[in-house]
């Protein structure tokens, strides 16, 4: 099982979280904590770069929805960038593709893995 890692990069538009590994019942709280600690402002755009997400179960979906709530509360936007095909299928089945803003590419200003802080 791949541990979940979350790397943050702050851009002008807003924070970008690179979420890699398995977002499951055990590890979802890691992302939840990251999202809770984010600084967001009105009009900001929180981007979750999911290009390296290997697995996302229902607990993972819950955290994505929590991120959406967190952004809405701050009058900010949430973008899910580069969701892998399996997640896209899950989002379609659960009807969440109509709830989230999805973007096929990996998000703004090309976050690289070696940037930002990595937390297991």
């Amino acid at each position: 099982m791949a541990d979940l890692t979350v790397a943050r990069r702050d851009t002008e538009a807003g924070p970008v979280l690179l979420v890699a590994g398995e977002l499951d019942f055990v590890q979802a709280p890691v992302l939840r904590q990251h999202v809770a600690e984010l600084a967001l402002w009105r009009g900001a755009c929180l981007t979750l770069d999911l290009s390296r997400l290997e697995q996302c179960d229902s607990a993972g979906l819950t955290v994505l929805l929590l991120a959406r709530e967190r952004a809405r509360a701050a009058a900010a936007d949430l973008v899910l960038a580069a969701p892998p095909p399996k997640l896209r299928r899950t989002l379609a089945i659960t009807g969440l593709d109509a709830v989230f803003t999805l973007r096929p590419d990996e998000g703004s200003s090309g976050l690289r893995r070696d940037e930002g802080s990595s937390v297991a």
Partner: peptide
């Protein structure tokens, strides 16, 4: 089609 995860939106 069109069914959404239950409990997300107030008016699914």
């Amino acid at each position: 089609p069109g069914g959404m995860l239950i409990g997300v939106l107030p008016d699914a």
